[in-house]
Simulated assay, not measured.
Amino acid sequence: MTGPSGTDRSAAGAPPAGRGRFGRRRDQAIALGWLVVVWNLLWGDFNWANLFGGLLVGGAVLVFFPLPAVSFGGRLRLRALVVFAVRFAVELVSASLHVARIAVQPGYRPRGAIIGVRLRLNTDLNLALTAEAVSLVPGTLILEVDRNSGTLYLHVLDTHRPADLEAARERTLALERRIVRAVGSEAELRRVDTGHSERGTRP
């Protein structure tokens, strides 16, 4: 049926493809899985107690504080997921050692900075996953997320030269790229891999 403006009203009111009851259940299961992972990362230890606690807390969050509907249109790539996990673990160890060195170095005063990084994809899922992963790395803190432009505003520890700011932007964009390669769609993968995508914005 076509409305006065010439648009297809039935198409406009129809839910997106794959957004039936199964699609909603699938998205809730994915959200619960990520909440469990975040819960264990916050505790710093993967064990049965934290797994059970994460399921309880994640289930309570989804029931009492329902998240906006975010459809997962990508697919899981096991090899890319392993690469992401290994690289992320290396970054965690490296950043932790760097922050520890700053803490024990006598007379050293680190200089922080706030930068804006515009991601290549401004979908809610990509913003949430990238922001969460960035905030888990010691020395970086998410201050604000601009949903409309897909920009993350970060506080970065120990920056003394413009090259340090550029390196922080590159690390954030590289992290986004690894996340999309692990769980993104083919179209999203092409966008993050293309050389014509916009780079991080300067503060």
Rank of each mutant, 00 (worst) to 15 (best):
L154F: 02
L154N: 02
L154G: 04
L154D: 02
L154W: 02
H155W: 12
H155A: 12
H155P: 08
H155C: 09
H155G: 09
V156N: 05
V156D: 08
V156R: 05
V156C: 12
V156E: 03
L157V: 11
L157F: 03
D158E: 01
D158S: 01
D158Q: 03
D158H: 06
T159K: 14
H160K: 13
H160I: 06
R161V: 07
R161D: 12
R161F: 09
R161Y: 08
P162T: 04
P162A: 07
P162D: 03
D164S: 04
D164F: 00
L165Q: 07
L165E: 11
E166Q: 05
A167E: 08
A167F: 01
A168G: 08
A168Y: 03
A168R: 05
R169V: 01
E170D: 15
E170F: 07
E170H: 10
E170W: 07
R171F: 11
T172H: 01
T172P: 01
L173Q: 08
A174R: 09
A174G: 09
A174F: 00
A174M: 02
L175P: 02
L175M: 09
L175K: 04
L175N: 04
E176I: 07
R177L: 13
R178G: 03
R178M: 11
R178E: 10
R178C: 06
R178A: 13
I179K: 02
V180G: 12
V180Q: 12
R181Q: 12
A182D: 10
A182T: 11
A182F: 11
A182I: 09
V183G: 14
V183K: 14
V183I: 15
G184K: 13
G184R: 14
G184I: 12
S185K: 10
E186W: 15
E186F: 15
E186V: 15
